[in-house]
């Protein structure tokens, strides 16, 4: 089958790739680019483990075709560290014990980041809504919400 050329930006760097027209963004990130921080938990858009940020919005990469990413800016969990320093959300997750097995964590952190980027001062309810597409079987969400709240408060 003919491949499609995509030029996109992944974690700030330009990337040019030839992908199969049916290739999921999830597989291209994980397999072609080696960015395995993005996870697959359901493949049908229900668990949020595969969440990344595309042009400021969260996207389930299991439902997104890589071919549609031409010209887009994609941020994955690997793109959060700046100058070898943890992103404040990552720091807060660790501090608040907001992760256990960690499989959902990259997705949750990306949802949190997209929220805080667009709304630096969210209410508890807004935080809950923003992460409601991310299933976490281990933590019960409370400490996740606390972590995000703390980041918001600190940035005030």
């Amino acid at each position: 089958m003919d491949k499609v050329k995509v030029n996109m930006f992944v974690n700030g760097k330009p990337v040019s790739l030839e992908v199969k027209p049916y290739a999921r963004l999830l597989d291209v990130l994980r397999e072609d680019l080696g960015l395995t921080g993005t996870k697959e938990g359901c493949g049908v858009g229900e668990c949020g483990a595969c969440t990344v940020i595309v042009d400021g919005e969260t996207v389930n990469t299991c439902l997104t075709l890589a071919a549609s990413m031409d010209g887009k800016h994609i941020t994955t969990i690997e793109g959060l560290m700046e100058n070898e320093k943890l992103h404040p959300i990552q720091e807060a997750f660790i501090k608040h014990n907001a992760l256990q097995c960690g499989f959902c964590t990259p997705g949750l952190i990306m949802s949190a980041k997209a929220l805080l980027d667009s709304n630096p001062n969210p209410s508890t309810e807004q935080i809950k809504v923003a992460i409601s597409g991310n299933l976490c079987r281990c933590t019960g969400y409370e400490q996740v919400v606390d972590a995000i709240k703390e980041v918001a408060e600190k940035s005030k």
Binding site: T36, E78, L80, F93, L99
Partner: peptide, 20 residues
Amino acid sequence: ITRVDVLAKALGKAKYTDDL
């Protein structure tokens, strides 16, 4: 003390089996 396993997980660097 911080849990010994969480840093790699928060960074997305922990290697789960499917990542190998």
